[in-house]
C-alpha cells in the first residue's frame, strides 16, 4: 500500500482463493462475492450452511468458504428443509439456477415456500440452462433464442416465462421476496443489502426468504458481458421488474 493511503475494499476472506470457473462477467461470481461479503460482515461463517444445485454453480462449495452440501438437480429446497429442521440454530440457504429452481425443482420450491421453511433461497435467474449449453428455461423471455428455441420462445408452445418472485410472494408463509440484479454498482449494492436482510429475517425466524437475482449468461446468450447488461435493462427488467415484492410487516 502506498504511504498515506488506507485499504477500503478487498476480496472477502470468506471467498476462497480458488479461481472461480465462471465465464467472464457472469453474475454467479458477483453473487458469490456479495454473499460472502455479507457472511463476513454478519460474522456468521461458522453458523451458515449452503446447499448447491446442479447447474453452472454446482461447484459453489469450492468458492464459498462455508459449510455446504450438494443436492441433486432441483432438490436443493428439499435438502435445505432437512438441514434447517435438524439445525434450526444455523442460517441455511439454497443457491439455485432457474432450471434448477423453476423447472425440475419447482415442486420443491413451491412446497418449501408454502410450508414457510425458514431458509433463504438465492435464485439465479439467467433465463437459460447455462451449464448444459444454453437450452430454454422456464424463465427464457418471449422471443428469446436458445438452442431449444432457435426461432425464439413461442408462448403458444412454451407458455410465458415464470415470474417466481410474483408466484412465491402469494404465500402467507413467505416473509420476504425481492428481485435484484448486479448490472450496475448501485444495483449490486442493493443486491447485497437484500441478501443481508434475508439472512437477518431468517435469524428472526420469520419464514421463507427469497432473493431472485436477475442474472446474465453471456456465453449462453452469445453476447459480450457488456451486451448482457444491455439485454437485462432493455428486455429482462420490463418483464422481471426489480424491487421488493413482500417484506415482514413490522419493517
Amino acid at each position: 500500500m502506498k504511504e498515506g493511503y488506507k485499504l477500503i475494499y478487498q476480496k472477502p476472506k470468506t471467498l476462497r482463493e480458488k479461481r472461480m470457473h465462471y465465464c467472464p462477467g457472469c453474475f454467479h461470481a458477483t453473487t458469490h462475492k456479495l454473499m460472502m461479503e455479507v457472511v463476513e460482515e454478519l460474522g456468521i461463517q461458522e453458523k451458515i450452511i449452503g446447499v448447491c444445485p446442479v447447474g453452472c454453480s454446482v461447484f459453489a462449495y469450492d468458492y464459498m468458504d462455508v459449510d455446504m452440501q450438494e443436492a441433486a438437480h432441483g432438490r436443493a429446497a428439499a435438502v435445505a428443509t432437512g438441514i434447517k429442521r435438524m439445525h434450526p440454530d444455523k442460517i441455511v440457504f439454497s443457491y439455485q439456477g432457474d432450471g434448477d429452481l423453476a423447472a425440475i425443482g419447482i415442486a420443491e420450491t413451491i412446497h418449501a415456500c408454502n410450508r414457510g421453511e425458514n431458509f433463504t433461497f438465492i435464485f439465479i435467474n439467467n433465463g437459460i440452462y447455462g451449464m448444459t449449453g444454453g437450452q430454454m428455461a422456464p424463465t427464457t423471455l418471449e422471443g428469446q433464442k436458445t438452442t431449444t428455441s432457435p426461432y425464439g420462445r413461442d408462448p403458444k408452445k412454451a407458455g410465458l416465462p415464470l415470474k417466481m418472485c410474483e408466484i412465491v410472494s402469494q404465500f402467507d408463509s413467505v416473509a420476504y421476496v425481492e428481485r435484484v440484479s448486479c448490472n450496475t454498482p448501485a444495483n449490486a449494492r442493493k443486491a447485497k443489502r437484500a441478501i443481508k436482510k434475508a439472512f437477518e429475517y431468517q435469524m428472526q425466524g420469520l419464514g421463507s426468504t427469497f432473493i431472485e437475482v436477475a442474472s446474465n449468461c453471456p456465453s449462453g446468450w452469445k453476447c459480450t458481458p457488456e451486451e448482457s447488461l444491455e439485454w437485462l435493462k432493455e428486455k429482462a427488467f420490463p418483464y422481471f421488474p426489480l424491487g421488493v415484492f413482500k417484506k415482514p410487516e413490522e419493517v
Binding site: 493511503y5 449490486a188 449494492r189
Partner: peptide, 13 residues
C-alpha cells in the same frame, strides 16, 4: 463492487 471475480482492491487517501 461490479467486478464478479473480486479482482480489485481499493485504497483511499
Amino acid at each position: 463492487v461490479i467486478c464478479p471475480d473480486a479482482a480489485i482492491t481499493v485504497y483511499k487517501k
